[in-house]
């Protein structure tokens, strides 16, 4: 196990020092957060009636439901967009693992690594953790940012009333230290 954590630590150090890898790793989460937020903000403020009609027909939602238009839009995003975050913990580890394992071969570090007394299981575990841990962290942070963004947009219209979806996620994330109400109050 010690060898696995040594490899994990080294991989995270290398990741921090690789702007290209960090950027490629953050591009998908950034898009996953920015696109729905911009979409909701635009729909709420400037969407033409044809678009709202189309939304109502395709998603079969009542645009006059609880919370008004913004409440309905946030609920629709929560329902249709948040499941896409399940893709990230699949996609990002592939990117990380390809870089990590392929990089060992490319840099000819695999042979010196195999010559050390750590076991194959430790190498596999270390590499797996190095692929999964940053990916999960990025996914959770991105999901939290989306929820926070939706809250901020909704709060502009509804006051600091938390949406059920974002509250649930934030509780799951255990970010109790984050005083969301205070932030929303300051924001306004």
């Amino acid at each position: 196990m010690r060898g696995a954590f040594l490899l994990l630590s080294k991989e995270l150090t290398e990741l921090r020092r690789s702007p290209v890898l960090v950027l490629s790793m953050l591009s998908l989460p950034t898009a996953m957060v920015a696109v729905p937020l911009l979409l909701v903000a635009w729909l709420d403020r400037a969407a033409p009636p044809e678009t709202l009609y189309w939304l109502r027909e395709v998603y079969r939602i009542d645009l006059q439901g609880p919370g008004g238009l913004i409440g309905v839009l946030v609920a629709a995003v929560a329902k249709n967009w948040l499941p896409l975050f399940l893709v990230m913990p699949v996609f990002l580890p592939i990117l990380m693992a390809a870089q990590s394992v392929g990089g060992e071969r490319e840099r000819r570090t695999l042979e010196p690594l195999l010559a050390t007394p750590i076991s194959t299981a430790e190498i596999v575990l270390g590499k797996s953790l190095a692929a999964v841990v940053p990916s999960l962290a990025v996914t959770w942070v991105a999901a939290a940012l989306l929820c926070l963004g939706l809250d901020l947009i909704a709060a502009g219209r509804m006051g600091p009333v938390p949406t059920a979806v974002s509250d649930g996620l934030l509780i799951l994330l255990a970010v109790k230290w984050f005083d969301r109400e205070a932030l929303l109050t300051r924001w306004r």
């Binding site: 060898g3 040594l6 080294k10 150090t13 000819r108 570090t109 042979e111 010196p112 010559a115 050390t116």
Partner: peptide, 26 residues
């Protein structure tokens, strides 16, 4: 073992590379 090509991690410095392998050697 001295391998035919040195094989170190480009983003770690010389000292960090040695310390990393030293720790892998226990």
């Amino acid at each position: 073992l001295l391998t035919e090509l040195p094989g170190f991690y480009d983003r770690l410095d010389a000292n960090e590379n040695l310390v990393h392998f030293g720790r892998l050697y226990g």
